[in-house]
């Protein structure tokens, strides 16, 4: 074995990325756990209230949070963008070999990269559609309305219409996307404990693994409950018609429900106003 030839070569100044390599990697790990992972828990728990609890009330609470746009930008879009850009760059620098070395941990590794990319695509489409109003050339005409024109609750009905869409791939894409997020977060929480040096021994890693599997299963159950409810919810004809009319008549693509919220009507009046 020959020794390396150039120990005395003048090393060039390392790039800013190289100088902050450790910090970037640890921020990548941290951004996946807090805020993205914690948000995922709250989001899926909120969704679960479609089946048990008051989904409408929860969504109204979230939409009425103060400084929501800053929470979204600083707590969600920037961390997700940062985590995704670095994650994709790291994935491109790897060479998964689960076929050659088919250990369970190695499949877990490969699946982490696959679900990361799926989760990123899903989160982009999900946010672009429901928050920014993209329709992807009309293929994803599934608007989310919190209220009807006179304050009628529509949160569950909008979700149900989306998941009962004529194209089954909306439901399939949603299920794959949500479960990719759940896996990526639960497995990421497990590996982060090794990377940060929390779980030192194999036994500790196994114990933490039990916790992460439990958390992942809990989130999977929350999502399954919400998906079941939305897929089987009997959407009333008038709710469907209301959403169709609001969709046809709206002028601004972004967040139409915010404008509706400005003029809420009492519940009995809202019932009379419904066609």
């Amino acid at each position: 074995m020959s020794a390396d030839a150039s120990p005395n070569a003048q090393a060039p100044q390392p790039s800013l990325l190289a100088q902050n390599h450790f910090l970037l990697r640890r921020l990548h790990s941290l951004s996946g756990i807090v805020p993205i992972g914690v948000f995922l828990i709250f989001h899926l728990f909120t969704n679960f209230q479609m089946l048990v609890g008051n989904f409408q009330h929860e969504v109204e609470f979230i939409h009425n949070m103060p400084a929501l746009i800053y929470i979204e930008i600083l707590g969600l879009w920037l961390p997700i963008g940062f985590h995704a850009v670095l994650g994709i760059a790291y994935t491109l620098g790897s060479n998964p070999n689960s076929i050659q070395y088919p250990y369970m941990d190695n499949w877990r590794y490969t699946l982490q990269r696959v679900t990361g990319i799926l989760a990123f695509l899903f989160i982009f489409v999900h946010g672009a559609k429901l928050r920014w109003g993209f329709t992807f050339g009309g293929y994803l005409d599934t608007p989310f309305y919190l209220h009807g024109p006179h304050g009628e609750p529509l949160a569950t009905a909008s979700t149900a219409i989306a998941l009962q869409h004529a194209f089954p791939w909306v439901l399939v894409g949603y299920v794959v996307g949500v479960y990719a997020c759940v896996y990526h977060w639960a497995n990421g929480l497990w590996t982060a404990a090794i990377s940060w040096g929390l779980t030192l021994s194999v036994a500790a890693q196994r114990r933490w693994g039990v916790f992460c599997v439990g958390l992942g299963l809990a989130l999977a159950v929350f999502s399954a409950g919400a998906i079941y409810k939305a897929a089987t919810y009997p959407v009333a004809d008038q709710q469907r018609e209301m959403i169709r009319l609001m969709e046809a008549g709206r002028t601004l693509p972004a967040a139409p429900h915010d404008k509706v919220l400005e003029l809420p009507l009492p519940a009995e009046e809202a019932h009379e106003a419904a066609p």
Binding site: Y90, S94, N97, Y101, Y103, D105, N106, R108, Y109, T110, Q112, T191, I194, S195, W196, G197, L198, T199, L200, S201, V202, Q205
Partner: peptide
């Protein structure tokens, strides 16, 4: 390190490599 943990499984000397990775991580 991507925590695939193949290292510890193929090590012929049964060195606890993943524990070393966690220790250096800490």
């Amino acid at each position: 390190c991507g925590n695939a943990q193949n290292c510890v499984k193929v090590c012929p000397k049964e060195i606890p490599l993943t524990e070393s990775i966690a220790a250096i991580g800490r």
